[in-house]
Structure formats: structure tokens, C-alpha cells
């Protein structure tokens, strides 16, 4: 088994570890860093449950090799809490809008929401549907998830 040293920044902290060159970023985040918000739903890039932000852009970490993370800045759901454990606005919106049921797709959805919100752009509801369409959810019918993202977007843009 070939191993390689991967140095990267995860949730604001510089870290390094040796990984199996065949390992996915999901495996590294879950197994080496115990960031278990990164969920495995299909492991082939279909469901979005493992979604994380790499250098500002969302990726399915299950089809992103761990070795590709060298030098990258990676953010997972665990990074969103404030210094005293405060929920971020989008996390609070998922709570308030009842956008959470079993919770398994939730971390991935929230990270894509973060990417959408950080763009600073205003999207129509249809555009939000398109931007969220890389995630599968079997519990919610997506309705309250879209509401949570739309409401948070409007609040951040001062339009709520």
C-alpha cells in the first residue's frame, strides 16, 4: 500500500497526514480527521451527502482523491459554528424552517448553501433549485430546504 503525505488546511487549521493514495477525501476527512459530518450515501458522486468546500467551491469529496487535497483549503460543516458554539445563519434557518428530518443529507446541503450565500448574488427560486440539484434528499421533498436557503439569502442581501 502506497502512502503519501498530504498537507492541507482543514477548517482553518494547517494539518498533515499520510494517506493511502487510493483513498478519497471523504475517507481522509472521516477516518483521519473524524469529521463525521461528511456522509457517505453513494461514494460515486451521485447523492451529494459528502459535499465539502475546497478553495471556495463545492465538491463531492467521495470522488475527490485525498492526495488532491495537497495545499488546499477545505471546509466542512464543522467549521460553521461561531467561537462560542453559535449556529451560523444558514444552520439556524435549517432548524427554523424544519428543513431537517433524518439529517443525513443535511451537512452536504448546508455546505452548498454556504457556497450559494457567499457568492453574494441573488437567485430566483428556480435558480436555487438548479444550484441545489446535486443533492438528493428522500425525507423533505426539498421544500423547506429551498425555503431555508432563500430566506437566508434574502436576509443577507437585506431584502427580507
Amino acid at each position: 500500500m502506497e502512502k503519501k503525505l498530504v498537507k492541507c488546511n482543514i477548517n482553518g487549521k494547517d494539518v498533515e497526514t499520510y494517506v493511502d493514495v487510493r483513498a478519497s477525501l471523504t475517507d481522509m476527512l472521516r477516518n483521519d480527521y473524524r469529521l463525521t459530518s461528511v456522509k457517505k450515501g453513494c461514494e460515486v458522486g451521485e447523492c451529494g451527502a459528502c459535499n465539502v468546500i475546497i478553495d471556495g467551491e463545492c465538491y463531492n469529496s467521495c470522488i475527490y482523491l485525498a492526495v488532491w487535497a495537497e495545499g488546499k483549503h477545505i471546509r466542512t460543516l464543522e467549521s460553521l459554528l461561531g467561537p462560542n458554539g453559535e449556529l451560523s445563519d444558514i444552520q439556524q434557518a435549517f432548524v427554523d424552517e424544519a428543513a431537517v428530518q433524518c439529517g443525513f443529507c443535511t451537512p452536504g446541503f448546508i455546505m452548498t448553501s454556504v457556497e450559494i450565500l457567499e457568492s453574494g448574488k441573488e437567485y430566483t427560486r428556480d435558480e436555487l433549485r438548479k444550484r441545489l440539484s446535486g443533492h438528493l434528499c428522500r425525507c423533505t421533498g426539498y421544500e423547506n430546504i429551498i425555503n431555508a436557503v432563500e430566506n437566508t439569502m434574502k436576509k443577507r442581501l437585506g431584502k427580507a
Partner: peptide, 14 residues
């Protein structure tokens, strides 16, 4: 609000 919502939006739900 759901009693498990905060654990589920923070990744603490195991």
C-alpha cells in the same frame, strides 16, 4: 423546533 435539529445541522448527530 425539532429536539434533534441542532445536532443534525452541526454534524454532532452520530
Amino acid at each position: 423546533k425539532r429536539v434533534d435539529a441542532i445536532d443534525k445541522v452541526t454534524g454532532k448527530a452520530r
